[in-house]
């Protein structure tokens, strides 16, 4: 066993892990943050996407020990402490961008990075391409794309405040 120290949603943790422990296993099993889902476990579906130092990454394809010293943001850390939803979450709700909800945490985390890294704006094509690593099996892409397009101006207006 080895020790890994990392910050998750603003809180520092030191955890004992094996070499083979995946970041997603650390989050779900050691820290109880089960909002991050394991869908395919083959790096294709994107249900496990979290941010590592602000960048979207598939946490099922990352060793926990690789994240030593990193700053992790999961779906649980997105809303304000008082429960006010992040604009992306709010737009997913408003545009009915989910059905069963299994892919939603990964979709939201990917979408937040996509919007943050494209302050100049996002075309529908760019949004769809940006989601190519996130699979939804309820065929909900259309409303997900609408939600992300609607969240873009809200997030950048908030960032400018």
């Amino acid at each position: 066993m080895a020790q890994v120290t990392l910050t998750v949603n603003g809180k520092q943790h030191t955890v004992e892990v094996e070499g083979r422990t995946l970041l997603v296993e650390l989050l779900r099993e050691k820290l109880g943050l089960t909002g991050t889902h394991i869908g395919c476990d083959t790096s294709q579906c994107g249900a496990c996407v979290v941010h590592i130092d602000g960048i979207s990454v598939k946490s099922c394809t990352q060793l926990a020990l690789q994240a030593d010293g990193a700053n992790i943001l999961t779906i649980e850390g997105l809303a304000d402490a008082d429960g006010t939803l992040h604009p992306m979450q709010e737009m997913f709700r408003e545009h009915h961008a989910l059905q069963c909800g299994f892919c939603t945490p990964g979709m939201v985390m990917t979408a937040v990075d996509l919007v943050q890294s494209h302050p100049e704006g996002l075309s529908e094509k760019e949004i769809r391409e940006g989601l190519e690593g996130n699979l939804c099996r309820c065929t909900g892409y259309h409303n997900i794309v609408k939600a992300i397009a609607a969240a873009h101006p809200l997030m950048h207006a908030q960032a400018a405040e």
């Binding site: 790096s43 994107g46 979207s56 990454v57 190519e132 690593g133 996130n134």
Partner: peptide, 9 residues
């Protein structure tokens, strides 16, 4: 190559 998240790693 891959997708956005894969290209980040």
């Amino acid at each position: 190559i891959g997708d956005e998240a894969v290209r980040h790693r």
